[in-house]
């Protein structure tokens, strides 16, 4: 079957089998290998992408489900080559080591950023609890998301 959707701001039409997973189609057919498969049953969160702005597990979604929807992957987070706040904060806080799980964290973090709410560390830890990381021990990830989200929120408050 043929599906049409928007991926990282670009219209995409792709031929898929009904049982193909969104993660596989993004990686294999569209070459977007940023998202990773760490468990393939929705626990580790390394495959997280945004669908119409909401985080979803691309390993638990069929490609056919995204017809007509907007998908954002880690490759789509930087705009015009400029890293978004979460990406920048991840580098500054050493929030990644091997980097395999990082795309999922960045997508989740970007979702939190887009909510525009001030979050305390406990709330951030709770919000990140759907993503597993084996290298960092999470502290620097929480530092990074805290900085990115609260900086953004502070700016928003100033603008109001």
């Amino acid at each position: 079957m043929e599906i049409t959707c928007e991926v990282n701001g670009q219209p995409v039409t792709v031929e898929v089998e009904p049982h193909w997973l969104l993660a596989d189609v993004l990686r294999n057919q569209l070459g977007l290998t940023g998202l990773h498969l760490g468990c393939e049953y929705g626990v580790c969160g390394a495959c997280t992408v945004l669908m119409d702005g909401e985080p979803v597990r691309s390993c638990l979604s069929f490609a056919s489900q995204v017809a007509g929807h907007q998908i954002t992957t880690v490759e789509g987070l930087a705009v015009d080559g400029k890293l978004n706040r979460v990406q920048t904060a991840f580098i500054n806080h050493h929030a990644l080591q091997c980097g395999f799980c990082t795309p999922g964290f960045l997508v989740t973090g970007t979702y939190l950023l887009q909510q525009g709410k001030l979050l305390n560390r406990e709330e951030i830890r709770e919000a990140l609890s759907g993503n597993l990381c084996r290298c960092t021990g999470y502290q620097q990830i929480v530092d990074a998301v805290e900085e990115a989200v609260n900086q953004q929120s502070a700016n928003a408050v100033e603008c109001e």
């Binding site: 940023g34 880690v74 490759e75 930087a78 990406q87 580098i91 980097g99």
Partner: peptide
Amino acid sequence: MTRVEDERLVTGQGQYVSD
């Protein structure tokens, strides 16, 4: 110092075996 490794990895440009 922040890492020279990171910019590729936060933009999905990492190349792991599975990629």
